[in-house]
């Protein structure tokens, strides 16, 4: 008997009393009716001690230019006009950058797939302007551009917009730890600086 058969047989035996499968009561809130999701998102991201700025589409290149310097990782599909005003050395991931190159980069600029207002969360799924996961992990500074129409109210709404087959990173503020006396310290292994530009 394989371990697989053995385990499945034991599970079936353990359920010999045929416990009923419950109906899941889903009375929790799936949406945030009447909320200013963009305002709430900005407030909640800022609570994590990330830098948040709201800009107009026309003001975006200028805001990006102010936030970045040095060698900056640029994921595939990033709109070229985003970097039009920036005085940076772009690092393109084609051919793929080595981990050492990524580690030495000064920053990374990306878009996102979805953002959640209630929790101040940005979700990357490797799509356009996001790149593979390592790109937004190793550089110490992450500048993320979020369009207002990408912001939803709740976790439930975000999940319906996401494709589970894509690798995802949910980001809520900069890297942090509370492991020393449960005091929160921002910045351990992930990017220690997270800056968010909300375009609306």
């Amino acid at each position: 008997m394989t371990a697989r058969d053995d385990m499945l047989a034991r599970i079936r035996a353990a359920l010999a009393d045929h416990p009923a499968t419950p109906t899941v009561p889903r009375e929790y809130h799936r949406t945030l009716p009447d909320a200013d999701v963009v305002g709430l998102f900005a407030e909640r991201v800022a609570d994590y001690r990330a830098t948040v700025r709201r800009v107009s589409p026309a003001g975006l290149p200028g805001a990006i230019a102010e936030a970045l310097r040095g060698r900056v990782v640029v994921p595939a599909g990033l709109p070229p006009e985003w970097l039009a005003a920036a005085d940076v050395e772009p690092l393109h991931d084609d051919p793929p950058l080595s981990v050492e190159e990524l580690d030495r980069a000064d920053g990374v600029v990306s878009g996102c797939a979805v953002a959640i207002a209630l929790t101040g969360t940005i979700i990357l799924d490797g799509g356009t302007a996001q790149g593979r996961r390592a790109l937004t992990l190793l550089p110490d500074h992450h500048l993320c551009v979020v369009r207002a129409d990408q912001i939803v109210g709740t976790v439930a709404e975000a999940l319906t917009r996401l494709d589970p087959s894509r690798p995802q990173t949910w980001i809520s503020g900069p890297s942090a730890t509370s492991d020393i006396e449960l005091n929160r310290v921002e910045g351990v292994h992930g990017p220690r600086n997270l800056a968010v530009l909300i375009v609306s």
């Binding site: 929790y28 609570d47 209630l118 929790t119 969360t121 996961r133 976790v155 087959s165 690798p167 949910w170």
Partner: peptide, 28 residues
């Protein structure tokens, strides 16, 4: 994703969550 972060680290959301399905060519 709502119950765990608030019960655990007492945050609205933990800083990072990774989700993956099998293997993604060229990523990870």
């Amino acid at each position: 994703m709502q119950l765990l972060p608030r019960s655990s680290t007492a945050e609205r959301m933990n800083p990072y969550t990774s989700m993956w399905t099998g293997v993604t060519p060229g990523d990870g």
